[in-house]
């Protein structure tokens, strides 16, 4: 349970009307309303201000507010469109919308590209890819030799960096994903297809409020 009733969420900074959010995302109005409860719960889990702070995001993902993770940081930063260190309700809905099964293929490919462009240079560079591989190995308690890591990164670059300039641009990324569609499999959350069916408690909540 969150710290605000859905009606008082409307006084939270960054609140946006569900009808407007539904118009520009893959969600219906009732789905946006259903996501109130989840947003409310996460945004009040540590700091009861109706905004999702990074520690709250980590707590929701890992059940541990102190567990740092490079990729979770990247997702948080991309959701935090205003770059003010918190995820507001509208940002949460827009961010999650990319993961909706009905969201466009292009939006998923672009989101993944921005996710992996760690330093926001407009390219995925070799050092960034190596940093991500190292982060994944660390997270997974996997130990590979330095030579093997270099080999994995080199091999990937030789396949993806088709013009051989040492960085992967968006066109090269699109081409690489088209040959390896599993790369964006995690950009789709089947849960989001029917939130109201998957989370009937959300429906009951929003129906009660609609009838008030």
């Amino acid at each position: 349970m969150g710290c605000f009733a859905s009606k008082s969420l409307k006084r939270v900074p960054g609140y946006e009307e569900p009808t407007l959010l539904a118009a520009e995302t893959a969600f219906s109005v009732s789905e946006v309303e259903a996501l109130f409860e989840l947003f409310n719960k996460i945004s009040c889990s540590i700091i009861r201000d109706g905004l999702i702070h990074k520690e709250e995001f980590q707590l929701a993902l890992f059940r541990n507010q102190k567990r740092r993770n490079l990729f979770a940081d990247r997702v948080f930063d991309l959701f935090d469109y205003k770059r003010n260190g918190v995820i507001e309700f509208g940002e949460f809905i827009r961010g999650l919308s990319v993961f909706h099964p009905n969201a466009s293929y292009d939006s998923k490919v672009s989101f993944a590209y921005r996710l992996y462009d760690l330093r926001n240079t407009g390219f995925i560079e070799r050092e960034e890819l190596k940093e991500m591989v190292l982060a994944l190995l660390h997270e997974s308690d996997l130990v590979l030799s330095e030579d093997l890591i270099e080999l994995i990164v080199d091999k990937t670059f030789s396949e993806a960096d088709s013009n051989g300039d040492g960085k992967i641009d968006l066109e090269e990324w699109k081409e690489f994903v088209s040959k390896n569609p599993s790369l964006i499999r995690n950009m789709t959350l089947p849960y989001l297809k029917d939130i109201t069916g998957a989370f009937p408690s959300f429906v009951e909540q929003s129906e009660v409020e609609e009838s008030e």
Partner: peptide, 26 residues
């Protein structure tokens, strides 16, 4: 699959930090 049979992006796409489905687990 072994890390050695995957390309680097397939490897990193398995990160738990990218599994937003866990946001929906009660």
């Amino acid at each position: 699959a072994s890390p050695l049979t995957m390309n680097a992006f397939q490897l990193i796409s398995t990160s738990q930090g990218l599994n937003l489905g866990s946001l929906f687990e009660k």
